[in-house]
Amino acid sequence: MCHPGWARALAQEQRLKDLARLRRVRDRIDREYAQPLDVAALAHDVNWPAGHLSRQFRLAYGRSPYAFVTARRVERAKTLLRDGDLTVIEVGFLVGFPSQGVFRARFTELAGLTPGAYRRGAAVAATRTPSGPVRNGEALATAPQLA
């Protein structure tokens, strides 16, 4: 019969191995977000069934692998739209969306604006100069009104 302490130690060791597998999947997504990635291929790399990977990934990171890939692509698209000179269509394809329609829909869903509107808003924000310190996403301060 197995000692209860050993069983706990074995379970903890397995949990650490599982977390390392999930980290490898997340790191691959971070590196290869612009490539076609599907759950089956990600699961194959860590020797898990796709359904098991999806469940474990959601438990560890709060979203499915597909949602994680989409979020990474939108994050990168925001940077390119804000700082680059590529067209909206070029940005969508560069970050890995299969079509302009999918890019627009996923971007709008996650960012709350269309990619074009986001770019225009970023351009306007870049021309503003804050009148005081801006920290932690605070709104730009307005000039004080003197009587």
Results as ranks from 00 to 15, higher is better:
A34C: 00
H52W: 14
I29C: 09
D30I: 10
A41R: 12
G51N: 07
Q56C: 14
L42N: 02
R55Q: 14
L53P: 06
F57E: 04
D27V: 10
A67R: 01
G62H: 02
L37I: 00
P49M: 12
S54G: 07
A20W: 03
R31H: 08
W48K: 06
F68T: 09
R58L: 04
A60D: 06
Y66D: 13
R55Y: 12
R26Y: 11
R21I: 09
R55A: 13
R26I: 05
H52I: 12
D30E: 14
G62W: 05
Y66R: 13
G51I: 08
R21Q: 08
H52P: 07
E32L: 13
D38I: 09
H44P: 10
R23D: 12
A67S: 05
Y66W: 14
V46N: 01
G51K: 15
L53H: 03
R63W: 05
F68G: 08
S54I: 02
I29R: 01
L53S: 02
D30H: 13
D27A: 12
L59S: 13
S64R: 08
A20E: 03
A43N: 04
A40R: 11
H44V: 13
L42C: 02
P65Y: 03
N47R: 15
L37H: 00
N47G: 12
F57S: 00
D30Y: 08
L59W: 10
L22H: 07
Q56T: 06
H52D: 13
I29V: 12
A50P: 05
Y61M: 00
F68E: 09
Y61T: 07
S54C: 04
F68N: 00
L22S: 07
R63C: 09
V46F: 06
W48L: 11
R55T: 14
V25A: 06
R55G: 05
V69Y: 01
S54R: 00
V25S: 03
A20R: 10
L37N: 05
Q56Y: 02
R31T: 09
V69G: 04
D38S: 09
L53G: 08
L37F: 04
G51Q: 09
Y66F: 12
H44A: 15
A50G: 07
W48M: 06
L37Q: 03
S54K: 03
V39M: 05
V46L: 06
F57V: 00
R63F: 07
E32H: 08
E32T: 10
V39N: 07
L22A: 07
H44E: 15
R58E: 02
S64D: 01
A34H: 09
R31S: 10
W48P: 00
R55W: 05
W48R: 09
S64A: 04
I29G: 01
S64G: 03
L22M: 02
R23I: 11
Q35P: 12
H52F: 11
D30C: 10
A50R: 00
Y61G: 06
R24C: 11
Y61P: 03
Y33G: 04
R28T: 15
N47D: 15
N47Q: 15
A40M: 02
Y66A: 08
A60W: 14
Y66S: 15
A43G: 05
A67E: 01
Y61I: 01
F68R: 06
H44S: 15
R21S: 12
A40D: 03
R31G: 08
Y61K: 05
G51D: 10
R26M: 13
R58M: 00
S64N: 03
P49N: 13
